[in-house]
Amino acid sequence: MSSTEFLEGLKNEFPGAITKIDIGYGQKFAEFSSNAAASIFNVCSTNERGRFDLLEDLLAYDSGDDIVLVYNLYSTLLNHRVILKTSLHRKEPSILTATTVWLAALSYEKEIAELFGVRFKNHTTEIPFLLPKDWQGFPMRKDYVYPGGYSGIAHGSGVERRKR
């Protein structure tokens, strides 16, 4: 269980930054504070007990209060996985880009910036990405209000979650 050891080590190294360690369904989750992103990313990729060289997935979800980013890290050298999470204020969510450590974050961050409105500091490439260039709002947020139509084409009102 080297990823558990790694997380304990990480917690000792950054006592304030790692706020919670959790195991659910056999997977290790750790929550970190977004201020410490730079050092946490660096340690994850370079620490010899971690060596997380593959960012398998980076996603966001809207928990209702915060925008939560989930970094799914895998080490191809040590074959273990850890899932890092951080909560950002939904008013002006921003965090340092992970692209300097894992190039893989490039497209994921573009997607999250567009769909959730998270600003990634020092991220260079252009957004929009998946949506049309004139799209308004951040569709993946829970408080997103569906537009009545697009480009003059109205669509029906069946947009509320169906009651079952």
Binding site: D53, L54, W102
Partner: peptide, 9 residues
């Protein structure tokens, strides 16, 4: 190394 960095699978 490029493939891993970019996240290919």
């Amino acid at each position: 190394s490029q493939a891993i960095a970019a996240g290919l699978s």
